[in-house]
Amino acid sequence: MTAPPVVFAENASLAGIRLTDDIAGWLTEHWPEVSAVALDHATQTNEPARCATLLPVLTSIPGPLALLEVGASAGLCLFPDRYSYRYSDGTELDPPIGPSSVVIECEVAGDVPLPDRLPEVVWRRGIDLHPLDIADADDVDWLDALIWPEHDDRRRRLHDAVGIVQAEPPQIDTGDLVYRIEQTIAEAPEDATLVVFHAAVLAYLPRDRRARFVELVRESRARWISAEARGIVPGIPEPDGGEAGDFLLALDARPLAFVQPHGRAIRWSATP
């Protein structure tokens, strides 16, 4: 069965209209087109604002860093060092070369260990079943179509991030994350700290394959950052707190915070 968000996104992509318009008639008339394209696409939201919630964890890991994102889509979250950040407590962070065209705002609650610098990233790689090409206009249009119609700030941020990443497109390996993870880890540089991370990915896997992925990552030399819905990642305890719909952010299976799925907020819960 095709997921409703994909159908709605394809409607917006084909018709060039927003989902706030009256679309029932258009969908009925054009259903063969919508169905054909929707069945060939998947939900591959690539939200660079998630970097704001990853940043306190990334900067706690000794660098330089080699980043490997599973379920990378087009790879926009592989560039946390190229974006600017504005946290609600007044913390402001910019790349060494100056403020970025991508400025990510994030609400903070609790004792979030916000950094005073951005991480040094020396290697970037992704894995995805169907990688999106940041240089392909149709793929970028699909990423745009997947953004909720009222989220104009996310749409602007997407296109600004695309401009940054197009200057240095990351390598996104095509493959199943369980089958591909060991090979890609082996290709990471030995003189950098490898960090495997993912957000809103493991829910698309059956439970036994989630468990196998966790096993492979835990047995590797990588540090591991996960940001998934509660109850999705095997072996991670669920602390109390957070808000409905929050993801649980963890480092090496240790829960640290609850985060809003699109990076709008981080609610720290870990104790030192």
Results as ranks from 00 to 15, higher is better:
2 T>E: 07
9 A>S: 14
10 E>M: 14
20 T>G: 12
20 T>L: 01
21 D>Y: 08
21 D>Q: 12
25 G>T: 10
25 G>Q: 01
26 W>Q: 02
33 E>R: 15
39 L>E: 14
58 L>E: 04
58 L>H: 02
68 L>E: 04
87 Y>S: 10
90 G>Y: 08
90 G>M: 11
91 T>D: 12
99 P>S: 01
110 G>P: 08
115 P>E: 05
117 R>F: 04
130 H>C: 04
135 A>H: 09
135 A>G: 12
137 A>I: 11
144 D>H: 11
152 D>F: 09
157 R>A: 15
159 H>E: 13
165 V>W: 14
170 P>H: 04
170 P>A: 10
171 Q>H: 15
175 G>P: 06
177 L>R: 03
180 R>G: 13
186 A>I: 10
189 P>D: 06
189 P>A: 04
192 A>G: 03
197 F>L: 06
202 L>M: 15
203 A>P: 00
203 A>S: 12
205 L>V: 06
208 D>K: 11
214 V>D: 15
219 E>L: 09
222 A>N: 02
223 R>V: 01
224 W>C: 00
225 I>L: 14
229 A>Q: 08
229 A>C: 01
231 G>I: 10
239 P>W: 06
241 G>Y: 00
241 G>D: 05
242 G>A: 07
242 G>V: 00
243 E>C: 15
248 L>V: 10
255 P>L: 06
258 F>D: 06
264 R>T: 07
265 A>R: 10
269 S>C: 13
